[in-house]
Design a protein around this nucleic acid. Structure first.
Length: 310
DNA sequence: GTCCTGCCTTAT
DNA sequence: ATAAGGCAGGAC
């Protein structure tokens, strides 16, 4: 009975990209996906080996090489009725993929009726990387967890694995971030990043983290990272400019990008676990920070109560 | 479209 | 062991 599904990451032998299946049971029996109804095949401690994209959540966005996938949970009778969270094992699994860089198989179903879904049945469409996750507030007020999936061996993904150079010279002054297809916008995140922005931000702060004040010393010299407040590229499309960037140590960069800390409008630093203020963001007179980007970042991680009710 | 049965994995 | 719940599937 419990012919326990053996989770395997990556390509399944004999099931190449493009293979078609008549139904979910067939997908499962060919060991591409654990479930016959559930979207995410995975658990918190393993990560997710596969997902099905078949229009079950209206906040999904399929652009081929770039996908915004909505997490599990919160639905009652097919419509959103509660907030989603990362206690859900499937959602936590996809975060694990992101942090451990595990590939996820993407299977598209006919129900979604996008340009990329099959007209009937299900199709295995290759391996994707989970680039990041965040929360979105829907128009009805419910919060859903979302994941940016980018196809492996797309230019962006190769560049991310250092197979392609990230040359400072091919920069575009950072204001064309709205242009191009979603996949191109994802690609532009790294390939066309303006190194002058990074350099300025790091120099102003002398490589000291604006959160903790530490500098990571390496034999080659001090190390810091320029972190964008509103992420670059699809779908957030933050600008590649100094007022949308922070100088952070790798630890606080990871915390900031994954919602462990956020900023108030007064640039106080908040510990997301306790909600209490950890301190003030370290400033430099030349480094103006635009509060609009701080708000966009906060939207991804903090449920803001609807205004009104004076 | 809606309803309802059934089957799997995961959690308790 | 048993229960819960899910991006099915088919019937109507």
């Amino acid at each position: 009975m419990a012919q326990d599904y053996q989770r395997r990451f990556g390509e399944i032998t004999g099931q190449p990209e493009g293979t078609w299946y008549p139904d979910r049971d067939s997908v499962r029996l060919n060991e591409l996906h654990a479930h016959n109804r559930t979207g995410i095949s995975g658990i918190r401690t393993d990560g997710a080996d596969a997902i099905v994209l078949s229009g079950g959540y209206e906040d999904d966005e399929d652009h081929g090489d770039a996908i915004v996938y909505t997490g599990h949970g919160g639905q009652k009778n097919g419509s959103q009725a509660e907030d989603q969270d990362l206690n859900d094992t499937g959602n936590a699994a996809l975060v694990k993929n992101q942090l451990e860089r595990l590939p996820v198989r993407v299977i598209r179903g006919w129900q979604a009726r996008t340009d990329y879904s099959p007209s009937n049945g299900y199709r295995y469409d290759g391996l994707y990387r989970v680039m990041r996750h965040w929360f979105k507030t829907r128009d009805d007020g419910y919060r859903v967890c979302q994941f940016l999936l980018v196809k492996i061996s797309s230019s962006r993904e190769l560049e991310d694995r250092n197979y392609l150079p990230t040359e400072p010279e091919n920069l575009d002054s950072g204001h064309d971030h709205e242009a191009g297809s979603p996949a191109e916008r994802v690609l532009s995140t790294r390939i066309r990043r303006n190194s002058k922005v990074t350099e300025n931000v790091k120099n102003w702060h002398s490589n000291r983290c604006q959160v903790c004040g530490n500098t990571i010393a390496l034999p080659v010299g001090p190390r810091s990272e320029a972190a964008h407040i509103q992420p670059l590229g699809f779908p957030h499309d933050g600008p590649d400019i100094e007022s949308n960037a922070l100088c952070l140590c790798p630890n606080d960069h990871l915390r900031f990008d994954n919602g462990a800390l956020y900023l108030t409008d007064d640039l106080a630093i908040v510990d997301a676990f306790t909600g209490s203020i950890m301190g003030e963001l370290r400033r430099h007179p030349s480094h103006r920070i635009d509060i609009r980007y701080v708000r966009e970042h906060r939207k991804c991680w903090v449920k803001e109560e609807p205004p009104g009710d004076a």
